[in-house]
Design a protein around this nucleic acid. Structure first.
Lengths: 159, 159
DNA sequence: CTTGTATACTTGAGGTCGCAAGCATCGTAG
DNA sequence: CTACGATGCTTGCGACCTCAAGTATACAAG
C-alpha cells in the first residue's frame, strides 16, 4: 500500500485522507441533496431526518429532548427546527401527563403524508448519488464503519 | 441490529443506514473536534482546512476562488472566512499581476506557525477519536470509499 | 473602440446552529 | 414541607454559511 507518498505529514503512520475526505464529502453531498429536498418539498435535511425519526417512533411521537439527541442537535436547535415544522402543520405538541417538563413532538397526518412524499424523491436522490459509486457490499461496509463513530444516543420514554 | 424494523421501505434493496450514519457521524464528530480546535487555537474546522491547503500549496498561496472550491465553500463564504484569518494576521492578500480580477490568499509566517501548532493538537484529536475504532486497513478503506464521492475541484493558476 | 459575456470578488439579507442564561418541573434528602 | 440538584425547554446572542445582487476586470466578436 502506497500510504507513504502523501507525506506532507504522516505523523503517526496514518495520513489524513479519510478525515479530509469525510469533511469534503459531507459538504458536497449535503449541498446537493439538501437543495433538492428543499426545492421539491421545502424541507431541510434535518427536517427530513426528524420526520423519519418521528414516523418510525411508537405512536409517531417522541420526547423533544430524545429527538434532539438522536438527530444530534442541541436543545435549542430542536426547538427552532420543530417551530418550523409546527408552523407548517407537520408536527404537533403533546404535553406529557406524568411529567410536566416534557413535551412530545407528534407527527400529524399532514406530516405523515409530507414525509412519504419526500421520502420517495429523497430515496431516489440518494440512490442516484451513491448507487453508481458503491456496490451493495461497499455500501454496507461504509455503513458499518461509520456506525462505529461515537454518537450521542437517546433513551426512550414509554407513553 | 433492528435494521429490518426500519423497513417501512427498503426501496431498491438497500437501506439507508449508511446515509443516516454519515449525517450523524458528521454532526457528532464535527462538534467535538471543532470545539477542541476552537478552544485550543481559536480556529474553526474550516479555518484549519484552509490553513492546510495554503500550507501545502506552492509558495503557500492560492487564488481565493480555487481555495473556495477545494474546501467546498461559496465565494462569499471564502471572503468572510479569510476576513477572519486576515484580521488574525495568519493570511495576507496578494494581487495577481497578470489578472487584476484575481487575488491570492497567502499564508503569512505567523500563519505557518499557527498552522503547525494547530496541526499537532488536531492530529492528536483525530487520532484519538478514530484510532480506537479503526484499524489501519479500515481507515484506508474508509478514505477510499469516501474519496469516490463527487467533489467540486479547482484548477490551478501558476503565478 | 464598443458591446457582450464570463470570471473574480464583495456586500446585504436571511437562515441555521450552538452556547449561555433563564424558567419551570421533578425527585430526593433533610 | 422545604431546599437543592437534575432535567426539559425556551430565548438572546453571536458565529457561520448561502443566495442574490452589484462592481470590476478580462477577453472575444463586431
Amino acid at each position: 500500500m502506497p500510504s507513504q507518498v502523501l507525506s506532507t505529514q504522516a505523523s503517526s503512520g496514518r495520513d489524513f485522507a479519510a478525515w479530509t475526505r469525510f469533511l469534503r464529502a459531507y459538504a458536497a453531498v449535503t449541498r446537493e441533496l439538501s437543495s433538492r429536498l428543499e426545492q421539491a418539498h421545502g424541507l431541510s435535511l434535518r427536517d427530513y431526518d426528524v420526520l423519519v425519526q418521528l414516523n418510525g417512533a411508537p405512536d409517531r411521537q417522541m420526547r423533544r429532548i430524545d429527538l434532539a439527541r438522536t438527530v444530534i442537535l442541541s436543545p435549542s436547535g430542536i426547538t427552532r427546527l420543530l417551530e418550523g415544522l409546527e408552523r407548517a402543520g407537520l408536527v404537533g405538541k403533546h404535553q406529557c401527563e406524568s411529567d410536566q417538563r416534557v413535551t412530545y413532538a407528534v407527527l400529524t397526518d399532514a406530516g405523515v403524508i409530507k414525509f412519504e412524499e419526500a421520502r420517495a424523491t429523497h430515496v431516489a436522490d440518494v440512490e442516484e448519488l451513491f448507487s453508481s459509486r458503491f456496490s451493495a457490499e461497499e455500501w454496507e461496509q461504509l455503513a458499518e464503519l461509520l456506525g462505529r463513530l461515537p454518537l450521542a444516543d437517546a433513551g426512550e420514554c414509554n407513553a
